[in-house]
Computed example of a mutant assay.
Amino acid sequence: MSQSRAVVYPPDEEGGRRVRIDGTLLGRAFSVQDIVRFMQEAGLQDYDEMDVVRSPLIEWQGGGPDAWTM
């Protein structure tokens, strides 16, 4: 796949990261587990934390899955 399915934006002042999947802004995540939930709601029910951390479907902006503060 040449394009990411999900984009996780840089952390904001409160430690939240906006999450967009398939072009739709779904909300803010405050942990990898929140992103797991968003991915599951988008149809990837089998996704878990390790899938989120390693997935080529996710574009991490402003830091990877360990970056939750500015």
Rank of each mutant, 00 (worst) to 15 (best):
Y9T: 11
V7H: 11
T69V: 06
R20Q: 09
I21H: 02
A6V: 14
T24E: 09
R54Q: 10
S4H: 15
W68V: 00
D22V: 00
Y47H: 07
R28V: 08
S31H: 11
G62R: 05
M39K: 03
M1R: 04
G16R: 11
M50E: 06
D12R: 11
G23I: 01
E14L: 13
D22H: 05
P56T: 09
E59G: 01
D51H: 07
R17G: 02
G64V: 00
G64Y: 00
R37L: 15
S31M: 09
L25N: 10
R54E: 09
E41V: 13
I58N: 07
Q33L: 10
M1H: 14
L44Q: 05
D48L: 01
F38K: 14
Q45G: 06
Q45Y: 03
V53K: 13
G62P: 04
L25C: 09
L44I: 05
G15A: 01
Q61Y: 01
Q40R: 15
G23T: 00
W60K: 00
S55R: 04
L57Q: 12
P10V: 01
R5W: 14
A42G: 05
A67H: 12
V36G: 04
R17P: 04
G16I: 13
R5K: 15
M39G: 01
D46H: 11
W68M: 00
L57W: 08
P65F: 02
T24Y: 02
A6T: 14
I58M: 08
D66L: 03
G27H: 10
Y47S: 07
R37V: 15
E41L: 13
Y47D: 09
F38W: 13
P10C: 05
G64T: 00
P56L: 02
V19M: 09
I58P: 12
R5F: 14
V7G: 07
D66T: 06
P65T: 01
S55Q: 08
R18T: 06
P10Q: 06
D48Y: 04
Q33F: 05
L44G: 02
G27N: 11
Q3M: 06
L57H: 13
M70L: 10
Q45S: 04
G63E: 03
G63Y: 10
V32L: 06
G16L: 05
G43T: 10
G15E: 03
Q33S: 14
L26Y: 12
D34R: 08
R28M: 06
R17D: 07
D66K: 08
G63R: 06
L57D: 04
F30L: 03
V7M: 07
A6K: 14
R17I: 02
D46G: 09
M39T: 01
D22K: 04
G15Y: 00
A67K: 13
G23W: 00
F38R: 12
G27F: 08
R5D: 09
R54W: 07
Q45L: 14
I35N: 12
G15H: 01
W60F: 06
R28A: 08
G27M: 06
E13H: 04
R5N: 10
E13G: 08
V53L: 11
I35R: 11
T69M: 13
I21F: 11
G43R: 12
R20L: 03
L57V: 13
